[in-house]
Amino acid sequence: MSAHEDSHSNPGSQQKEELLKHEPGGDPPRNGITRRGFLKGAGITAAGTALLEGVHGFNTAAQSTDPGVKVLGPGAVPVTLSVNGKDHAIQIEPRTTLAEALRIQIGLTGTKVICDRGSCSGCTVWLDKMPVNSCTMLAIDALGRHVTTIEGLSEAGQLHPVQAAFVKHDALQCGFCTPGMVMSCAALLESNSHPTEQDVRHAISGNLCRCGTYARIFAATLDAAGTSRKA
């Protein structure tokens, strides 16, 4: 687990309750911020609906009348996050990382937080099809994008080819790095269906595996791509 047990990334259950206590409430939209206005301003399509009614303002004096500015927080804000093809209405504070929103608010704990600092890629998810470290970005920055987590990779109960190849090649030991590894390898195949081993090495160069299963991860990914292992 993270060395930073006391950080916001691992709030205790009490803190979690505190987080969830913030109700959308009946605050009127401030400064004429309507839901539609925010969506337009943030360049977010209706598909990635972000509900802004009841935003907890910081300090009325600090609010802006500029149409190019929307002030959120510090309390929880109701938003809708699109994850694995489904819209999730959740409450997040601006400081909530994407990993926290996924694990704590939505309960998708397949995404692992290991370093919480961008150094291990254990928390890899896709923003649209782009792999990112969910510990190192704010959940708010994922609004309007399609998030895919390890839970969303299989289709209709059918393992994704990379997942199946990991099983076949026994490409894991403790398994803690595996969700991130699979997401990185599957993202590679999305953009390059015939990778070389060098391509796989490059794609997972940010993913750390303490158990040292790299060789099998390379083999599994190449197998999933249907390419034979090159030198």
Binding site: S7, S64, K70, P74, P94, R95
Partner: peptide, 11 residues
Amino acid sequence: MNAFVLADCTT
């Protein structure tokens, strides 16, 4: 991480 206000800007 401390709580903060986020001013989300488009211009």
